[in-house]
Nucleic acid binder design. Structure first.
Lengths: 204, 204, 204, 204
DNA sequence: GATGAATGAGAGTTCATTCAT
DNA sequence: TATGAATGAACTCTCATTCAT
């Protein structure tokens, strides 16, 4: 069996195990068994538990970022891009709950080498959203009402809300990715005040 | 030294340790040392690592809920209550970063007995927010535009955004509780669309 | 409460606990609790776990030897004395199962300081039986058929059989002390060969 | 080194250690050291202290029963069978004092899972002896003089005497297995009364 | 390329024992 | 006389990691 296939099996097993038990509680024995290989092979291919976890984080982070980027058409208006990006995000996290759990739940809370890894990816997404908001603001006015600092805060809040909703949608299977995206897009764009007046944001 | 004092010292040490290392990686030796007592004493007072962690979660959850409830005046309009609640929330999490880390980062990701414990508290907060949004909607219209399901999703998104911002404010010390509350309140109430037009929500 | 009473309570609790769990598995906490006193008091009165166990062994051994000696009338013929002694032995062990368990089961198997203690008492009983057999032999013949060594072996076997029956009678409540004594006396005096011919030993 | 060899080494070390110190007082560290392996290996092969002790009991019990059964020729008369069986028993216990100590001293007094294990084996031996006595009685008379209950009591006493002598012979090395078997066989078959008259049982 | 065999280091937990009061 | 408070030491068990084959 070629090395790449074996390696992917191991990473799959590792992601599933880390997602369920966390970094410390996951055992290399368990991962090797789930992957259907012997433990020394895991070490041969992936060096150490730390390296293995890092590899999981990188793979899942890259996959998530790729999914969001693929879902977005840069030629469309900012709010449309945001809408598409959120849809892609919720779709991906719903389809890869273990990967999302590794990134959002485990990596962030397992100490320094790992938290930094996932923070990098998160910064990418926040930067992306920040840019979208700024672009929308520029489009609305030549002289934007929103300061950089304010935009950053808003982007952060938006990403945080999305992350939280992703976890919720995972747990409560009845919420679809599209619903989650709609809820959040309405919330973000129209605001509660307008929502109560019956005003909605809809994809143009 | 009286039992209650010692017990609080131990819980303080445990919260600090669990916050930094997580449930599994934290060692009872380390906690005992930080508390300035011997390990058997920790076991005498708190039974087991599991019980100790549970006690930490309960204490911190109760403190957070209490802080939010105390910050809110039920006689004021819903948006005002939300604003006050968010302020109290951000203030408390900023003043007790370890407690917040235990609740938000560690307890949620350390498996079943603990996740449930914190989920209960979170459900309390979400219910509180849900009720505020519903009250605001009732106030605006006799026949509310927002369905129950939609309100629940919004409450979830709002709480998630707040939780995420709390983590951010913790990390980046330059963001004050009031700033965080303002950002989120604007975001939530006015929506990005209006914010760009220069419309702001302000405490009445 | 006078010291002697307290001390007897503690020894009672200790005997019960050691009988059930053995020396190592018994905990001073458990003994103190069962005795209804605090742990330091146990140490004040009885010094250490080792001393406590030794005290238990000595008390129970003395009681057993005293019971056997009281049951025997040295003016009667040897076989009669043996019969009475066995009866007293089985009666006492049935009435003090915990004491018997401490002596026979636990003390013998808990290492050197204790095994010697109980071996001393056992040697007493074996010497008593040895003397009875030798006396009977002398009575039967001036020039005894049985050598010293042989007599010692027989005494040992007889005591062993008695000890084993005592445990059996304890477990199976339906066997009375008198029955046990009869069985053993027949066995010892008449032998299986004669028993099959219908010959029995009976108290003269 | 192949697994089976290692496993036997460990069991040997465990039997020696348990025999000397008892279940509770024996330490896994000590056993591993005596076996010349590391502690984790003991756990890898034998799971837990409890399982290890159980494995010791089973191995030694099986060996003892096998030795007795091999020593007996079922085609010979009952008293001859008894004689051969006792000889095999004393020979085996003398050659495996640690195994015998584990069975007779430690397992019986270390609480429920273990006592039952050894009680099963003992019941086997008692049943064997019971059957021999009953057979002898049938051979002597069509209408046996001894009731079932009486036979059971006698078998119990005989086995108890044998067990006790085995311990004695172990301690006092000067007593050979054959001597012990002779003493007991004479005692059992002829009875003390007849022994004093110079009547002996001898193998036919 | 793949593994059976093995371990150093450290975790949670318990217990006999002792002060200060 | 009696105890609440406290601990040093030891025990069972686990796990990431390596090497000879």
């Amino acid at each position: 069996m070629p090395r790449e296939v074996r390696e992917r099996q191991m990473l799959d097993a590792a992601v599933a195990t880390f997602a369920r038990h966390g970094y410390r509680a996951a055992s290399m024995d368990g991962i090797a068994e789930l992957a259907g290989v012997s433990k020394p092979l895991v070490y041969l291919y992936l060096n150490s538990k730390e390296d293995l976890f890092t590899a999981c984080i990188r793979r899942e982070a890259a996959a998530l970022v790729r999914a969001v980027r693929h879902g977005v058409d840069p030629a469309t208006p900012p709010d449309r891009q945001l809408w598409e990006g959120l849809g892609a995000f919720f779709t991906h996290t719903a389809e890869h709950p273990d990967g999302w759990a590794v990134l959002h739940n485990q990596a962030r809370t397992s100490g320094e080498p790992f938290a930094r890894e996932v923070a990098t990816m998160r910064a990418d997404l926040v930067a992306f959203v920040t840019e979208l908001i700024a672009a929308a603001a520029r489009e609305a006015h030549d002289d934007p009402e929103l300061g950089d600092r304010e935009v950053a805060g808003l982007a952060h809040a938006l990403v945080g809300a999305a992350e939280s909703l992703a976890g919720w949608a995972d747990t409560d299977g009845s919420v679809t990715a599209k619903e989650a995206a709609s809820t959040l897009m309405n919330f973000a764009w129209a605001g509660l005040g307008n929502l109560m007046e019956g005003e909605r944001w809809t994809p143009r």
